[in-house]
Design a protein around this nucleic acid. Structure first.
Lengths: 254, 254
DNA sequence: CGGTCCATTGACATCTTTCAAGGCTTGTGG
DNA sequence: CCACAAGCCTTGAAAGATGTCAATGGACCG
């Protein structure tokens, strides 16, 4: 690690036209000059506490997994962080072996939480970004909780597929195709199922024509509407997805 | 509702010695002059969006329940809010019939989110309170997610009892006694169980001597250590509880 | 005193996990 | 280029846990 964490005196007011990254992710470019950029590859662990201080991570590309393990139990993935999402080390529960792992190759910005706070104090755009990122995280965790507590296994899988499709899919000849940087075990640990059960559901979805044949690390959703019909949370996820895009468009227009 | 929401011009800088409420809950008293105080009684619903604007709630006494229901499923309680906790309407997932309900009698401060934000901009104490309240909420939701996804039903119940004991119990002759402002169904909906199963677990705990005979809306924990031993999350909850107290003590000392 | 709501408990059904075997994919080394 | 090994995924059968339904009992309220 050559660049190290930025210190407070480097934080200063900057006004620039929105860069392309701002337009697509909603992350204020004012932050860029103050971060350490980290490239990730599949399975790479990121230290949550850097130099023992509260640290913030902003996902630029790829997906981050925040997982927690309590003694005697298998791990639970408590959150998926997509491009534009923000994560702070203080989000991780104490005493829970919380770790942050890259699901696939990608890029992450790292910045000391106090430096980010200082930026937010002088840049209203940054403040708004922080507020929204945090509120949307809590709302999404709430959806995750409903899913874990109330959905049966088929609904859980449908919900995840809809979420991933809305987040990262590109359309190609009727299919919504997206990278699947998770192993079966990862998905199972996110949904609170076991891998065998998950495999059964996937097979069922395949034979029902909802998804295409899996090509290892890539997923092709054939009938997103039918999938959404099986997920009680679909409407909420769509709403969030729409809100995010409008929000980004709005910010880019400013 | 006679007082109505505070408007922006009412927000101004105030510096006072910490009041007793600050010392016990960690909520900066600078906020007090700008809030609408609401008294609650059991089952009372609080409108999440007041006058269609993002609203913040700060619990002063009692417990608030944030619940969400997706179409075709029973409700899930996604969070319990104890005295000192902060809640914003943007924390509720969209399209999910999210409602905020008082679990028992108590007091809640209500303030427009933008007014609170303006306060935080000029009062570092308020800013720090907001940051910590939000981070601790996310961390607690993560613990909730692990519980919902990985714990068996006995561990879930043990976890809730430990959490409530740490939050609100008073010791009396060896027992940790606390008010139980939740019905069996409330608890079941928080833990992702059904009420019948929950009842069985409670009976099992009673005959094992972990808890005393229930006296309707009051719980007496007989052997907190044994209960904690059955909850993989006990250590985390204790940690959070200790951190909160130290934090409050620290702030009161300033 | 009777009614209503909530909690408890048993019997049973269902869903999910567990365990084990086998197949497929991927990467490595000859 | 092929053979082989390792890991992951799939699938069946059986076991276990949890949910469902229904009956009963108790507390609170009018």
């Amino acid at each position: 690690m050559t660049s190290g964490a930025k210190t407070d005196e480097q934080v200063q007011f900057k006004t620039e036209p929105p860069c392309s990254a701002c337009k697509t992710l909603g992350v204020p470019c004012a932050i860029e000059g103050h971060v350490t950029s980290v490239r990730t590859r599949r399975g790479q662990m990121l230290a949550l506490q850097h130099d023992r201080v509260d640290t913030a991570f902003i996902v630029r590309a790829g997906v981050l997994i925040l997982q927690a393990t309590f003694p005697g139990r298998t791990r639970q993935i408590v959150g998926l962080y997509f491009p534009g999402d923000l994560l702070r080390s203080s989000f991780a529960p104490p005493c829970a072996e919380a770790t942050l792992v890259a699901a696939g190759s990608g890029e992450v910005w790292r910045i000391r939480a106090d430096a980010l706070e200082a930026l937010a104090a002088v840049e209203p755009v940054v403040r708004r970004y922080l507020d929204e990122a945090v509120a949307s995280r809590i709302a999404r965790q709430a959806i995750h909780a409903v899913m874990l507590g109330q959905f049966d296994c088929e609904q859980k899988v449908a919900t995840l597929l809809v979420e991933l499709a809305l987040r990262t899919a590109t359309r190609s000849s009727g299919y919504a195709v997206f990278e699947m940087p998770f192993s079966r075990k990862d998905i199972a640990d996110y949904l609170g199922l076991n891998p065998d059960t998950l495999s059964r559901i996937m097979s069922r979805f395949k034979s029902a024509g909802l998804i295409g044949q899996s090509e290892r690390s890539r997923m092709a959703v054939r009938d997103l509407a039918a999938l959404a019909a099986r997920s009680p949370a679909a409407q909420s996820l769509i709403e969030i997805s729409v809100a995010r895009r409008q929000d980004v468009a709005l910010r880019a227009a400013v």
